[in-house]
Design a protein around this nucleic acid. Structure first.
Length: 492
RNA sequence: GCGCUCAUCGUCUAGCCUGGUCUAGGACACCGGCCUUUCACGCCGGCGACGGGGGUUCGAAUCCCCCUGGGCGUACCA
């Protein structure tokens, strides 16, 4: 067995087996416990994926534990489809977790207990103010230039009228709350900025800022890595940890991802769903590599495999400023991984796309060979599939312009010669094909430029394809001959 | 409005903590060239930034202050 942190502590088994998520205890097990806690109100988006990735990487690097928790306290907006979509996306990216998924909706009993505990100890209270009253107060405060925070009307109320109520946490009103963020440094808030936040709604369900504390504490999370849109929540959560007698974890707030207009990344900036990129023909390693480099760096290096990252990732190299999502660079990375990827693996992926395109690949050339001719010229798997199409479907017609230029009567002679030379081939290896074409050139006295383009149009239907030699070799003698004959028949 | 936060090429960033080695490095994109049977790949080259103003210092991208600009938050969403 082999330590997944790719250290030198090879367990003495042969062959070595890498077991994701399994580490040699002595060297790598640490008490680090991190988590990813998405709320299932949609697909896994770029930002969430990066947060998950950072958590995953740190856990793997330190030999810690990565926990997945589903934040579905908002019963209205949470759906099972979203949960599935998120799980699927994480799997695609290769982000395995050690514990979970844990559902907050299944822990309401626990939260209720904690609410009661705070109510009893006087650290929380029932608030009977209606939504309308609150809205009015907020508006009023804003108008007077004040802070739109709850004014504490019910804070010291002692009666318990038979009215709907929410439970509010008694936030400290004096002093300051501060914490040392692992990424941003010391952050401090004056407590008079805090108002008494609602921890339990009228319908009895708990709210985010409350459950997140309980869960992180109960699950033993000691480092919370999350988006920096949560920085403002942190000083509200810390007093809750304290009120409940929990130890406050460390925090690491990672900067947000913005769109090209520097606004928070959203649908109008294009695809933001991780899985949408899979559909567009992106490789997961390209997505992981892109995501990690957005906000993190390691000298001048650009290319990182997951194993590299587990070895090299560190919160120390995470930047403090927000980053703009740049699809061009993602594309470049995808191109890179297609170029350097294992053709057999790529073939499996391309086969799926081809199937979706209703292209029947049975009886055609070996897809792995096909992929190899396309690796240097495709930026996405979808592009590759489209480029592979002609290998399996003989051209039904020829591109008009191309035919007018390259499939003319005066090409008959050389095309017939090509057919002759090719048909004499014993195999269609690349070497043999090259020799055949050389012979054609010699006998006809023509340069390749006078022959190749015509052959290309005959074989693929247009003027764009991999090298002619490769195409002929991969397509195979019989199919090439058939297509050439067909083109010959169309001449004139 | 208030609070928090951020600030190096168009974009991602190195450098900043421990001032001089920075006429600021790399990558994407873009432009030009080479290679070439098409399209690509590849290779070579180019364009291009320390937001502004004050300090401190012999010397500041690096330290301090102010300004400006951006982001986030300000929900019975998470």
């Amino acid at each position: 067995m082999f330590c997944a942190a790719s250290c030198n502590c090879v367990r003495n088994t042969s062959p070595p087996v890498v077991w994701p998520g399994l580490f040699c205890l002595e060297e790598h097990m640490s008490g680090l416990r991190v988590r990813f806690a998405p709320s299932p109100t949609g697909y896994l988006h770029i930002g969430g994926a990066r947060t998950a990735l950072f958590n995953y990487l740190l856990a793997r690097k330190e030999g810690g534990t990565f926990v997945l928790r589903i934040e579905d306290t908002d019963v209205e907006r949470s759906t099972q489809e979203s949960v599935d979509a998120i799980l699927q996306a994480m799997e695609w990216l290769g982000l395995s977790y050690d514990e979970g998924p844990l559902y907050q909706s299944e822990r309401f009993g626990l939260y209720k207990e904690k609410v009661d505990q705070l109510l009893e100890s006087g650290q929380a209270y029932r608030c009977y103010c209606s939504q309308e009253e609150l809205d009015a107060k907020r508006e009023q405060a804003m108008k007077e230039g004040g802070k739109p925070r709850y004014d504490g009307t019910c804070r010291d109320r002692t009666d318990q009228p038979d009215l709907p109520y929410v439970v509010r946490f008694k936030s400290p009103q004096e002093g300051a709350t501060s914490f040392d963020d692992r990424i941003k440094g010391t952050i401090s808030f004056n407590n008079d900025e805090l108002d008494d936040l609602i921890i339990q709604r009228t319908d009895g369900t708990p709210t985010y800022n409350f459950v997140v504390v309980i869960d992180d504490a109960e699950m033993g999370i000691n480092l919370v890595i999350r988006g920096d849109d949560h920085i403002n929540n942190t000083p509200r959560q810390i007093p809750i940890y304290q009120a409940l007698g929990y130890q406050v974890p460390e925090f690491a707030h990672v900067p947000m991802i913005l769109g090209s207009d520097k606004k928070r990344l959203s649908k109008r900036h294009g695809a933001t769903s991780v899985m949408a990129y899979r559909e567009m023909g992106y490789l997961p390693e390209a997505m992981v590599n892109y995501l990690v480099r957005l906000g993190w760096s390691f000298g001048d290096e650009e290319i990182f495999s997951m194993a590299d990252l587990i070895e090299k990732f560190s919160l120390d190299n995470v930047g403090r400023s927000a980053g703009v999502f740049n699809p061009d660079k993602l594309l470049w990375l995808n191109e890179h991984y297609i170029k350097t990827g294992d053709p057999a693996r790529l073939a499996v992926l391309v086969a799926e796309i081809l199937e979706g395109l209703d292209v029947d690949i049975s009886g055609g050339p070996d897809l792995t060979d096909v992929v190899q001719t396309l690796q240097d010229r495709a930026k996405t798997l979808v592009e590759m599939a489209e480029g592979a199409r002609f290998y399996f479907e003989a051209p039904q017609s020829y591109d008009e312009k191309a035919a007018a230029k390259f499939l003319t009567e005066d090409k008959r002679e050389v095309l017939e010669l090509t057919v002759k030379k090719l048909s004499e081939l014993s195999s269609s290896s690349l070497e043999e094909v090259e020799i055949a074409f050389k012979n054609v050139m010699e006998e006809s006295g023509l340069k390749f430029g006078k022959i190749g383009p015509s052959v290309r149009v005959a074989l693929v239907g247009g003027t764009v394809s991999p090298s002619i030699y490769e195409v002929v070799a991969v397509l195979g003698k019989d199919e090439v001959l058939a297509r050439l004959q067909k083109a010959l028949a169309s001449l004139g």
